[in-house]
Computed example of a mutant assay.
Amino acid sequence: MPSSAIPKAVLFDMDGTLFDSEKLWDVAIFELAETYGAAVPDETRSAMVGTAMSSSMVLLHEGIGQPWRDPVFSSDWIHERVAQLFATSLVWRPGARELLTEVKAAGVATALVTATERRLVEIAMSWAGPGNFDVLVCGDEVDNTKPHPEPYLMAAKLLGVDIADCVAIEDSPTGVASASAAGARVLAIPHHVPLTEGPRVTLRDTLSGVTLADLAALAGSTVS
């Protein structure tokens, strides 16, 4: 497979894209709300998907009608609970492991680009295999997290590639906005919330059956 026929790098989101981990965040968020004597409205949970923790806590507290709650306490509580769940309950999203394996076997550079903080990412990587990614860009390691383009621009910089030669795979509106604003081609796989196509954004229902040839087509290339 000629090197010119494939993306220079594939940039993967984590929660909801590679791993079916949004439901684990659900567990932690709903349990915390229960300790506050409240329930999380569906629209609040949907708005939280893919956002930075600081923004998510504002949305959560406002959504449950308790804006006075301490965001640091809530964030720490959720992170501790998610860490427990990541250690025992992570599973791959359909097609994600197979695509990642094919990309790595072809020698294509890979990055994990996530709004999740590194200590949780490290737990996930110990389960999924740290060698699957050349670089990790975590939410607590950038000045501006998704939907800002910085995380994807940083990933491309660390890999030494042009972001325009990369394909990003995302499942949330904030992630899609981040990757497309950075200049990457985006494969959007809706999970918890609906997504729409755009000039640089292609929709698929699932990663099942998606191959490196499909990613090359997104990048405007063909695989021979």
Results as ranks from 00 to 15, higher is better:
residue 80 E to R: 15
residue 120 L to I: 09
residue 104 K to V: 07
residue 78 I to D: 06
residue 109 A to F: 09
residue 98 E to T: 12
residue 86 F to D: 00
residue 86 F to G: 00
residue 88 T to A: 09
residue 82 V to R: 01
residue 72 V to R: 12
residue 114 T to H: 04
residue 95 G to D: 02
residue 91 V to M: 14
residue 95 G to A: 07
residue 122 E to Q: 10
residue 122 E to W: 10
residue 98 E to S: 08
residue 76 D to E: 14
residue 104 K to R: 14
residue 106 A to V: 11
residue 120 L to Q: 09
residue 101 T to S: 15
residue 104 K to M: 00
residue 96 A to Q: 06
residue 95 G to T: 04
residue 111 A to G: 11
residue 81 R to Q: 01
residue 92 W to R: 05
residue 99 L to T: 12
residue 100 L to Q: 03
residue 101 T to A: 15
residue 112 L to M: 12
residue 118 R to M: 03
residue 122 E to M: 05
residue 122 E to T: 05
residue 97 R to D: 01
residue 73 F to Q: 07
residue 83 A to C: 03
residue 112 L to S: 06
residue 123 I to R: 12
residue 115 A to P: 12
residue 91 V to L: 10
residue 108 V to E: 02
residue 73 F to I: 14
residue 96 A to F: 01
residue 90 L to D: 10
residue 91 V to S: 15
residue 72 V to N: 11
residue 109 A to Y: 04
residue 109 A to W: 08
residue 123 I to W: 03
residue 90 L to Q: 05
residue 76 D to C: 13
residue 116 T to Y: 12
residue 80 E to G: 12
residue 114 T to G: 11
residue 94 P to I: 02
residue 98 E to H: 06
residue 116 T to S: 11
residue 108 V to D: 02
residue 99 L to W: 07
residue 92 W to V: 04
residue 104 K to N: 13
residue 72 V to A: 14
residue 89 S to F: 11
residue 91 V to N: 15
residue 110 T to E: 09
residue 115 A to S: 15
residue 73 F to E: 13
residue 86 F to H: 08
residue 123 I to Y: 03
residue 76 D to L: 14
residue 72 V to C: 03
residue 113 V to D: 00
residue 79 H to G: 12
residue 95 G to K: 10
residue 92 W to P: 08
residue 75 S to E: 08
residue 86 F to P: 00
residue 124 A to N: 06
residue 79 H to N: 14
residue 118 R to P: 06
residue 121 V to P: 08
residue 119 R to P: 06
residue 118 R to A: 12
residue 86 F to Q: 03
residue 95 G to R: 09
residue 114 T to I: 01
residue 81 R to K: 12
residue 111 A to P: 06
residue 88 T to P: 01
residue 100 L to N: 02
residue 73 F to A: 11
residue 100 L to K: 06
residue 90 L to T: 04
residue 80 E to C: 08
residue 96 A to M: 07
residue 90 L to K: 01
residue 99 L to I: 13
residue 86 F to R: 05
residue 106 A to Y: 07
residue 89 S to K: 11
residue 120 L to H: 07
residue 86 F to E: 01
residue 119 R to S: 07
residue 102 E to M: 11
residue 89 S to Y: 10
residue 92 W to E: 04
residue 77 W to N: 02
residue 76 D to M: 14
residue 109 A to T: 11
residue 120 L to W: 01
residue 76 D to G: 15
residue 75 S to P: 09
